[in-house]
Measured scan of single mutants.
Amino acid sequence: MKVIFLKDVKGKGKKGEIKNVADGYARNFLFKQGLAIEATPANLKELE
């Protein structure tokens, strides 16, 4: 799953980066902790 990092995550990505991560990792950790959001077309447009 592609995500947009909202904060730096050690060993995974830095704020503003778009990366592929495991679905479970994204849903169970990154999204719940507010560290990333899903890289949907709408979210990508907001990032620009």
Rank of each mutant, 00 (worst) to 15 (best):
L6K: 03
I18L: 06
G13P: 00
R27G: 03
G16H: 08
I18W: 03
G13Q: 02
G34Q: 08
K14I: 09
E17W: 03
A39R: 01
K10S: 09
F29S: 07
K15G: 04
Y25E: 09
K15S: 06
K2V: 14
D23F: 14
R27P: 03
V21L: 05
F5D: 00
K10E: 15
D8R: 05
V3S: 00
K7S: 10
A26I: 09
I4A: 03
V3E: 01
G13T: 02
K10G: 08
N20E: 15
L6Q: 03
T40V: 05
K12Q: 15
K32D: 09
Y25V: 07
L35M: 07
K15R: 12
G24P: 11
E46F: 14
P41V: 12
K2W: 15
G24W: 15
F29N: 06
A39M: 07
P41E: 14
E38M: 10
D23M: 12
F5P: 00
A42K: 12
V21E: 03
E48Y: 13
V21Y: 05
D23E: 15
L47M: 11
K12P: 01
V3Q: 00
K7V: 14
V9A: 03
K15E: 06
E38G: 03
M1K: 05
K45R: 13
K2M: 15
Q33K: 14
A36W: 01
L6I: 11
A22G: 10
E17S: 06
A42P: 08
I4N: 01
I18T: 05
F31R: 01
K12L: 15
K32W: 07
L30P: 01
D8Y: 07
L6N: 01
I18A: 04
K10I: 13
K19M: 10
G11F: 07
I4L: 11
G13L: 02
K45P: 06
L44Q: 05
M1E: 03
L30Y: 04
D23V: 15
L44D: 05
K19H: 08
L6E: 01
G24V: 12
Y25K: 07
Y25T: 06
K12F: 15
M1N: 04
F5I: 01
T40M: 05
Y25G: 03
E46Q: 12
I37L: 10
V9P: 01
A26M: 08
E48Q: 14
E46S: 12
L30E: 01
G16M: 05
